[in-house]
Each structure stands twice: as C-alpha cells, then as structure tokens.
Design a protein around this nucleic acid. Structure first.
Lengths: 199, 199, 199, 199
DNA sequence: AATGAATGAGGGTTCATTCAT
DNA sequence: AATGAATGAACCCTCATTCAT
C-alpha cells in the first residue's frame, strides 16, 4: 500500500510534468493530467491541494537548486580570467568543464520553472535568474569598457542566453549534444560581447 | 458623432492592444477589454465582429509589413559582403541604415503578432520569421565554414535574435533608443557568429 | 414630408413582411429588417414600439378578416348540400366559386399569421382557425355517420387542410394556380372524408 | 452510483426531450434543460459534449429507423395492388398490418426529428421523408391517371400526410389509439387521392 | 484511497431595445 | 425624423475545484 501510494503520486507527477512542460501552467488541464496518470480527477486532489500545489511539487527542486546557486554564485565568477584568453578553443574547453557541473540542473522541471510558470508564485524565478545574469553582464561590461554606451543590452543578453539554453534543452534529449551546443552557445555570447566591447 | 465613434473604437483598440500584449490572444478577456475601454461588452461587438476580428485589426499592419519584407527579402542578403569587413563600426553604420527601414514595424502590435498570436490564424507568423532567419544563418554558416560542427544552433540563433529585438521593443518606447540597441544587438550576433565560425 | 414618412413606414413594413414570412416571428431579426428597409435600427423604433408591435401592424388585417369570417361563418355552411352531390366535377365547380371569395385572404400576411406567429399574442389565431374548421368536420361527420369511430381525426383534418392551403400559397405566387390547386386540395379532402365515412 | 448516474442521465434526457419537443433545437435552452432536470448547467456538460450531442442522443434512434426503412422501402410498394381493391375495410386491414411495423418509430423523438431539427445536421431528415413520399404520390398519380393536371399537389400531399401523422403522435400517447387513427388517416389519403384521380 | 458527479464562475457571442444627439 | 452608439440579459460552453459515497 505504501508502495502503491507512491506509484500513484509518481504517476501523477509524471503526467503533470509533461502537461506543464508542453502547455505551461495556465493552459495545462487538471483533467488531462488525471487522465494521463490513469487516475481520477478527484483522486489527484487527494494527493495535491490544487493545481498550484501540484506545480510546486514539480518545480521546487530546480527552484531550490537555483536559489542555492544564487547564494554562492561568487564561485561562478572565477571564470573571469577567461576574458584574457585569446584562443577560442581554450574557452570552449574551459567553459565545457564549468558547464558540466550545471548540466544536471537543466531538466524538464527546470524548463517548466523558467518558461512555464506564468500565473504562479514562481513567475519571479525566471526574472531572478535573468537579473542575476544581467548583473554579471553588467559587471563585465563595466570592467572591460567603462565607456560602452549600450549597457542597456545587459538584461537582453541575459534573457536570450537563458532562452537559448532552454531551447537547446527542449530540443535535444541527448545530454552530450546538450553539452556541446550549450557550450558553443555560451562561447558565442562570450565572443559576441567581447567583440562589441572591444571596439 | 463621427469623432465620438472613432474615440470609442480607438479606446477599444487601445484596451485590446494592452490586453493582448499582456496576456496573449487565448488568455485575453473580451470582458476585460470592454471594461478597460470604459464601455460594454455588447458595444465592443458593435464595432468588431469577434475576438479574432479585433485581434486582426490590431495585428494586420505589422503582419502585412512582414509579408512584404518576406517577398523581397533578397534585397536583404545584399549585405553579405559585410562579412569581409573587419571594422565593427563600419558594420554598425551599415546595419543601422538597413534597420532604419524596418524600425516602423517594431511596435506593440508587432510584439503581439510574434509572441501573443497562439490560437489565431496568425500563429504561423512567428515560425515563418524564425525559419526565414534560421535559413539565413544556415547559409552564412555553410558559406563561411563548411566544416562547422554545430549547425544545429542556426534556429536557436534565429529565435533568440528575434526575441532579443522583441525584448528591446517591449522595454524601450523611444524609437531612437530602439534603433541604437537593436543595431548593437544585431552587431553582437554578427560578431558572435563570425567569431565562432572563424575558429 | 407626409409622403416621405409613409414611404419609410411602408419600406419597413415590406421588409418586415419578408423577414417574418421567411423566418417566423422568433427568428426574425430587427437588424435585418432595418437593413433591408434601407433605414436604421433606431428609426424603426421611431415608428414601431417593438418587434411585437411591428408584427401586429402586418398581421392585423388578415387577423381581423378571419375574425369577421368567424363571426358570420354560418354563411359558410350553406355548401352542405354538396354532400349529396355524386359528381366530383360538380364539386370542383361549386367549391371553386366559393373559394374565389376567400382567395384574397390568402396573402403573405395571412401565411405569417398562421405559421409564423409562435411567440406572439397571435399564436392563438392558428388554433382558433383550426378549431373552427375542426368543428365543421366534426359536425359533418356526426351528420353523415353517427357511429363513425374515428372522430378524433377532425382536428387533424382541420390542421392539415389549413397547412396544405398555406403550403400552396407559399409555393405558387400566381393566383390562378393557387385557385386551381387549393380547389383540388379541398376536393381531395371532401372526397377523402366522404369515402371513409361511407363505409 | 451506477444507478445514480443513469438516473441523472435519464433525467437530463427527459428534460431535453421535453425542451426540444416544445421549442425545437434552436430555441431550446441548455439552462432550462439543466434546471428542469434538477441539476446544473455544468453538470449537463459532464454527460453530454454539446447541445448538438444531446440532441443526437435523443434523435438518433428514430433517425436510424428511418434510414433503414428508406434503404429497403421497395418492400413498401408491394401494396400497390391495393389500388384495385374496392372494399375500404380491406384497405384498412391491410394498411394496419403494414403500419404496425412502423409504429415503434412514431415516438416523441421522432416528432422532434421531423419538426424540431432545424439548425442541426438532422435538418435534412424531414425533407428526405417528404421527398420520398412525394415521389410515391407522383408515381401513383402517373400510373393511375396519366393526364391528371394537378400533379403539383404530390409534395403537398406528402407533407400533410407526414404532418398529420406527427399531429396524431403528438396528441395521443396510447399506441393503440395511434395505430387506429394513423391507419384511418392514411386510408383517408388513399381514398381521397383515388377519388380525385378517378375523375 | 478512490471515484466521478456536482458546482459556479468565467469564457465568447447575439440581439431586442433604449437613448443622446 | 433620423442616426447609430450603448445597454443588458440571455445564449452555449469550459474548467478548477469540492463533495458525497
């Protein structure tokens, strides 16, 4: 019975994960979630208080991971000396090994958290991540070219960097391909920003 | 009387523009649109046949502009020799004058068309734009570095380029700022892609 | 101006007559009536208090005719000696001349009154006519065959006789064809009822 | 529970049958149906997909019966030799036994199908029936009196024959009375048409 | 623990009627 | 007299949530 119960819960969570992943919070349907979990609508409400609660249960893990990364994100800025590197392939190698640590975070629930949480109390999560990254860009810009006049692009870069990563994660299941493409995508951002700052 | 009528129509259009802008087509509420236009739900239907019709009235102008750009977009690729240019500022100047022609398209309605048209007959617009751009990236990649191994990034670049522009348009009303930032953002993409292809 | 006014009124009445004729009271649309009368919805209400009032103005003439016929309908039963007649062609001739007097009643407004008045205070008109005719049938039946066991058919005969006439009027505009077909249709009823009463 | 469910379904079906019977499809109100079924509007939609679906569930049985009769209605025309029979009572007997097979079709749902289906995909049913019968009349007329000059009456006869049957079904619930009256009504049509064709 | 029936608020839409001009 | 904008009640339908069993 103990086992049985967990089976049902997992079945619901799986079904919900798919639904939220495909449609986002607002357009997701509790009926569909129940149906694809091979259980009843009423029974879903025996295990989860509400649609929002169910969403929380799925999204909480990546949310907490993100929070803890935020708290000690100074460790992240160790890569700053990269800016000095002239050889792009060296960047690729360095970045790949750094990314490797974060890759486990890029799961379906993370994608849901970032782009499917509109309408929930988690909708700030995406903004927080964007802002954190935007700050980074901002700092780098300031550090590298104090007189650069298009600083407003920092949040744009941040957002599109994140969305690009999300897009790669959504489209490619194979973790190796993910790693290769995300690395290259981040290198692209590094090269691009360096380029416009250089001149 | 003539004036009165247009006032109401504009009031409805403004209200609808905001609603569609904030919520997208599907989640937008005709009741809310009416309320924010200081009129009655029934009266909205005196001026517009349906929700979809109201949406069309807002989105048609940027849609047609996009279509006409698509039809003669060969003129766009004339800028290919830019790739040879080493001086980034030259790129900036060239791109800025090119973008100048497209700037009138980048309005709130355009944003709605691109990211709020799910559920309408315009939902293909975003995809069409993304595909067109993705092809461009693809061609450039192939032209410049036949052995480049991360070609899968083309659609990602396309999508994030568009989303970045959208984000700029959303955040800055001043057309001059828009022009400056969009130009720089596109230059950033050019520099970035060139950089990763070069090595 | 006086003339102008009547023109508008007639235009509205004509348009309404068509609309009620084609759709019946309930499904008729005031908007459509106004449009087809080349005037405004609001203006229709300057001349007629309501949809029901407009309906009345169209249907009142045939209604009153019907009422006056009802009041002295004993004159109608003078044709009873027909029952003795064996020659059908004699019936045809006799009936045709009788019908001739009633033909002017079978106009579009009459049709509207009989089959398009559901939902109005005139909806009893049809029933009244049916009942009057049913009584006639009843009397004849009783007169001719006191032991006939299917007396309940009287109202059915009445209703179908009326509906048949209405159908002929609706489908044939030519008054001569109307006369020929209605006569024959009534003869058919006479022959039919006589036949089943005879045995 | 199983029982409870069927009770509600039947309650809704009954309520809907009455509503459609009284008002026809278009004017019937789902709210009224729900109210008269002692349930909620939303709950009606738990059992039936749409207004049209609910209508189908009521009308499908008589519709299918009608269709199967249409498919092998050649068996019907076998009674043609009846035309030679001079004894009306023989006709009565013969017709009654023929009608007996069709009687189960003549229910409230059948009435709804024939006169209340405007606005649904079943709206052709009445026309189909009328046309089939009109053809029959046409053939008989031609067969029996090639020079008869009022052939236009065929569709009128067809329509009024049907409407008469409908009227009987509407007014008499007792199946035996139905049988007696419908038989007599059809005999009346036979005698009537024979009479006018004979001369 | 599980069912699925029931609820109610909200969605888009139509239309007779009223009212200010 | 004429306009047509505005209203409000009713339409069909959806869906998260609750509740009795």
């Amino acid at each position: 019975m103990q086992i049985k119960k967990e089976e049902v819960i997992n079945s619901i969570l799986d079904s919900a994960e798919n639904e939220f992943f495909n449609l986002g919070y607002d357009k997701a349907s509790m009926r569909t979630i129940a149906k694809n979990a091979d259980t009843t609508l009423g029974n879903v409400y025996n295990y989860f208080d509400s649609k929002e609660d169910l969403f929380s249960k799925i999204v909480d893990k990546p949310y907490n991971m993100m929070q803890s990364i935020f708290r000690n994100h100074n460790s992240y800025s160790k890569g700053d000396e990269l800016l000095e590197i002239k050889n792009i392939d060296a960047w690729r190698k360095e970045l790949r090994s750094t990314l490797h640590r974060y890759l486990p975070m890029f799961t379906k629930p993370f994608v849901i958290l970032i782009e499917g949480s509109t309408g929930t109390k988690y909708s700030h999560a995406r903004d927080a991540l964007v802002n954190l990254l935007a700050e980074h860009f901002h700092e780098h810009i300031y550090e590298y070219n104090k007189s650069y006049e298009n600083v407003e692009l920092a949040p744009v870069f941040a957002e599109e960097l994140i969305d690009g990563v999300i897009k790669i994660v959504k489209n490619y299941d194979d973790i190796n391909i993910q790693e290769r493409l995300i690395t290259e995508y981040v290198v692209f951002f590094a090269v691009g920003t360096m380029g416009i700052l250089n001149n």
